[in-house]
Design a protein around this nucleic acid. Structure first.
Length: 413
RNA sequence: GCGGGCGUAGCUCAGUCGGUUAGAGCGCUAGAUUGUGGAUCUAGAGGUCGGGAGUUCAAUCCUCCUCGCUCGCCCCA
């Protein structure tokens, strides 16, 4: 038996768990204020759900999916991202009768990749989807929502919003042709990786990190040169919306999307503090997705954020609550201790009850847990129906009647 | 999937140019203190030196394989 977590998975405990929770609670709270309702889709779906929507040639499909055949003979895949499941729910749950659908989700995703800092095989995402509206206001809303979450997490200064447009499907496809023919002329000078991209995903050449590629890319035709009027107007609308709300962004004409269903808006909130894993929140518009899955054509826009990556940017763990330590003194205190701890917990206190050792040991433990106060239950006090309460910051001690204990501890809550 | 670096106690790390019982600090357990914390002193527990194979009289150290971590590439949150 191998006593280690599977590669790319890990146990998340204590401080790190607290940071994750802070990311999720902050995101959920902000999303609710924007009218987004929580949705929880299954963490596995029929394989086709992801195969169809992610595009047969994307890396996610060809080499990164956790796929297996279940006992009923169906091909099942652990979700590598959240959008496809939401789109599937929209169709199979009849939610398209009640558009717009505004939802927030959080939970684990799975990709079979080589782990790195901020990248795991089981990782966790928060995300929102806005299905129905096909106009730039919707894109502005989800971007502003993301910016708002980062603001509440105190990460505005550590991230930059990069923005681009891929144009509508007509413009994107025209641009694809122009781009492929340009790169064909320079094919011999392209890196090996980019020669492969040229066949499978030419847009990806634009954000290649290879020096030689970058020189060729510098003179490549730009997206907007292939835009029709509608695409130009759409992007202008998004920019205007962000401007009016004073959300800072940087247009990055090389920003593209790996997944096939994106159109128009593409954006990423990036940081330079996580090495190669710069993107902490990324998303865009995916008007063709629902139709590809067999539903009525439904525009959509949204994003996903990496909880691990966001948590890594957070400064410290949120302060743990300071408990009240209950300390039985001698045999006589043992039974009352559990009873009083129970009462105080029901009264809403965070209570720590040591399990063994003399008073000195228990005090050391209380101190290590950063307890705010200690309640001593000794034979003498109990005989009088009292307990001794010690303020662990000041060292001050007072005797308090057991019946008034909960009230007396109010200032240490 | 490709390339580089690294795996010695719970944590951070020494160390052995191949040689007997592998060390430190912190942490942990206990005592000094059977009714009072943070300090101090004392004692103790804790290691298949990541795993396997090879070379050798002898391997934690050298070689190979493997697992894991890490950085970069691919791709992506």
């Amino acid at each position: 038996m191998r006593l280690q977590p599977v590669r790319g998975t890990r146990d998340i405990l204590a401080d790190e768990a607290a940071r994750h929770r802070r990311v999720m609670e902050t995101a959920r709270g902000v999303a609710l204020r924007y009218g987004y309702a929580e949705i929880s889709t299954p963490i596995f779906e029929f394989t086709e759900v992801f195969q169809r929507t992610l595009g047969e040639t994307s890396d996610v499909v060809t080499k990164e999916m956790y796929t297996f055949v279940d006992r009923g003979g169906d091909s099942i895949t652990l979700r590598p991202e959240g959008t496809a499941g939401v789109a599937r729910a929209l169709i199979s749950g009849g939610l398209s009768q009640n558009l717009p659908l505004k939802c927030y989700y959080e939970g684990p995703m799975f990709r079979y990749e080589r782990p790195q800092k901020g990248r795991y095989r089981q990782f966790h995402q928060i995300g929102v989807e806005l299905l129905g509206p096909g106009d730039p206001h919707a894109d502005v809303e989800v971007i502003v929502l993301a910016a708002h979450i980062l603001e509440e997490l105190g990460l505005t200064g550590k991230t930059v919003l990069e923005l681009n447009s891929l144009g509508d499907s007509e413009s994107r496809s025209r641009y694809g042709d122009v781009l492929v023919s340009y790169f064909r002329d320079h094919e011999s000078a392209l890196s090996h990786d980019s020669k492969v991209r040229l066949e499978r995903n030419p847009l990806r050449i634009l954000d290649s990190k290879d020096e030689g590629d970058r020189k060729i890319v510098a003179n490549a035709p730009l997206f907007e040169e292939s835009f029709n009027q509608a695409s130009t107007d759409f992007f202008a609308g998004v920019c205007a919306g962000l401007d009016s709300l004073e959300v800072a962004y940087k247009v990055n004409r090389r920003l593209v999307r790996g997944l096939d269903y994106y159109c128009h808006t593409a954006f990423e909130f990036v940081t330079n503090e996580l090495g190669a894993q710069g993107a902490v929140i990324a998303g865009g518009r995916y008007d063709g997705l629902v139709e590809i899955m067999g539903g009525q054509p439904t525009p959509g826009t949204g994003w996903a954020g990496g909880i691990e990556r966001l948590a890594l940017l957070l400064d410290g763990a949120p302060a743990a609550r300071r408990p009240i330590a209950i300390i039985p003194v001698g045999e006589a205190g043992e039974e009352p201790a559990t009873r009083i701890a129970n009462e105080l917990r029901h009264a809403g206190y965070t209570v720590e009850l040591g399990y063994r050792g003399n008073v000195g040991r228990r005090m050391k433990r209380a101190n290590k847990l950063n307890a705010r106060a200690a309640v001593f239950l000794g034979e003498d006090e109990l005989a009088r129906g009292e307990a001794k309460v010690r303020d662990l910051d000041s060292g001050e001690e007072v005797d308090v009647s057991l019946s008034g204990l909960a009230r007396a501890l109010e200032k240490y809550r």
